[in-house]
Design a protein around this nucleic acid. Structure first.
Lengths: 197, 197
DNA sequence: AAACCTATATATAAAAC
DNA sequence: TGTTTTATATATAGGTT
């Protein structure tokens, strides 16, 4: 993309690496922005330069919100994932059943999500996960949506109930006539139905 | 960058927006990767498609680590207390770690495996795979139960509602000539919740 | 949708400033 | 170091299958 073709490997010359970084960083930001606008999606991009300087770009949604959304998405994923993780394990790196059991046990006993990203049974995990992950995520998300819908309806029903409860109370104390002139109803107690996952 | 020049604004045609998204997403990922390699920097990129699907890319440092780094860079405490909307499932988590470990151990020892070569790995993979399926099934069952519970509560609420509705009606007819004008009883919208699996 | 095809628009490496 | 220039490599819009 320039006078010379360039190998996909670290540019050793510090100077041209710096120049390249500057140019490409701008280009990347631009393209990221384009993607976001043209395709109407949310994106977040951040770059830590060698010296630890941070460059970032994100769509209207602030970076923090996108990160939160990301985390939330990941948590949902976690709902469908087992804590089988880590410890490099490939055909070269053979380990005994006991060893493996110990490793797995250790991981299974760890409920700390943060630890899931240390090196470990990556390869094994990926093999297992890639097979099932998508389906599980879909399934979970579907369920979550159903549950959410149910929660909303539940809330609605509860509100109705409270409303009617008041009507009954009012009817009883007022005698019997009531009604027709409901305009000045004070605030109604509203209960929030919350299901915690 | 194609046959036609394109305005920097949302592509309205859904189809070509989708196609463009796919192409540009890939291009962006590629360029992100190039930047990371050529310039030896850490980058993280994630994209939420319109339908909420997540696409992400990050350098060797896992996304989580980069996020952490970003956070500390920003010194924002916001992220540390992200909504954790699922205490329940976590605590009741499928089956206990010990239980899982036992099952796994059983699988491993049952087959008298000592060293895992490539073939052994494949076998282990299958075992874990079936284990994953079991766990998944249990999790599904659990969620189904939650849904069922919600549905039951919903039904209960509806019963209550109907009951109260009758009370209101009774109170009114008991009373006097009511106000008339009202063509129909204050009927609240009744929704039928149908969950289709 | 995905995969391939071109003509064009863009990005950018290297040179020149 | 950064900017501008230029020649070339890449990306991709719009087709086609």
């Amino acid at each position: 993309m320039g006078r010379g073709k360039v190998e996909l490997k670290r540019i050793e010359d510090k100077s041209s690496r710096q120049v390249s970084f500057s140019k490409r960083r701008n280009g990347l930001m631009k393209k990221t922005h384009e993607l976001a606008v043209l395709c109407d999606v949310d994106v977040a991009l951040f770059i830590f330069s060698g010296r630890g300087r941070l460059y970032e770009f994100s769509t209207g949604e602030s970076m923090i919100k996108l990160l939160t959304r990301y985390q939330s998405y990941k948590k949902t994923e976690e709902l469908t994932r087992i804590s089988v993780h880590k410890q490099k394990l490939d055909s070269e790196n053979v380990c005994s059943a006991d060893e493996l059991t110990q490793i797995l046990k250790w991981h299974l006993e760890e409920n700390n999500i943060q630890l899931l990203d240390t090196t470990g049974l990556n390869q094994l995990e990926q093999q297992l996960d890639s097979l099932l992950q998508q389906v599980r995520i879909r399934k979970t998300q579907q369920m979550m949506e159903v549950v959410k819908a149910l929660q909303e309806e539940e809330m609605q029903l509860k509100k109705e109930r409270n409303f009617m409860m008041e009507e009954i109370m009012a009817a009883r104390s007022d005698g019997i006539d009531d009604d027709s002139g409901d305009p000045s109803q004070p605030q109604r107690p509203v209960m929030d139905a919350q299901i915690i996952w």
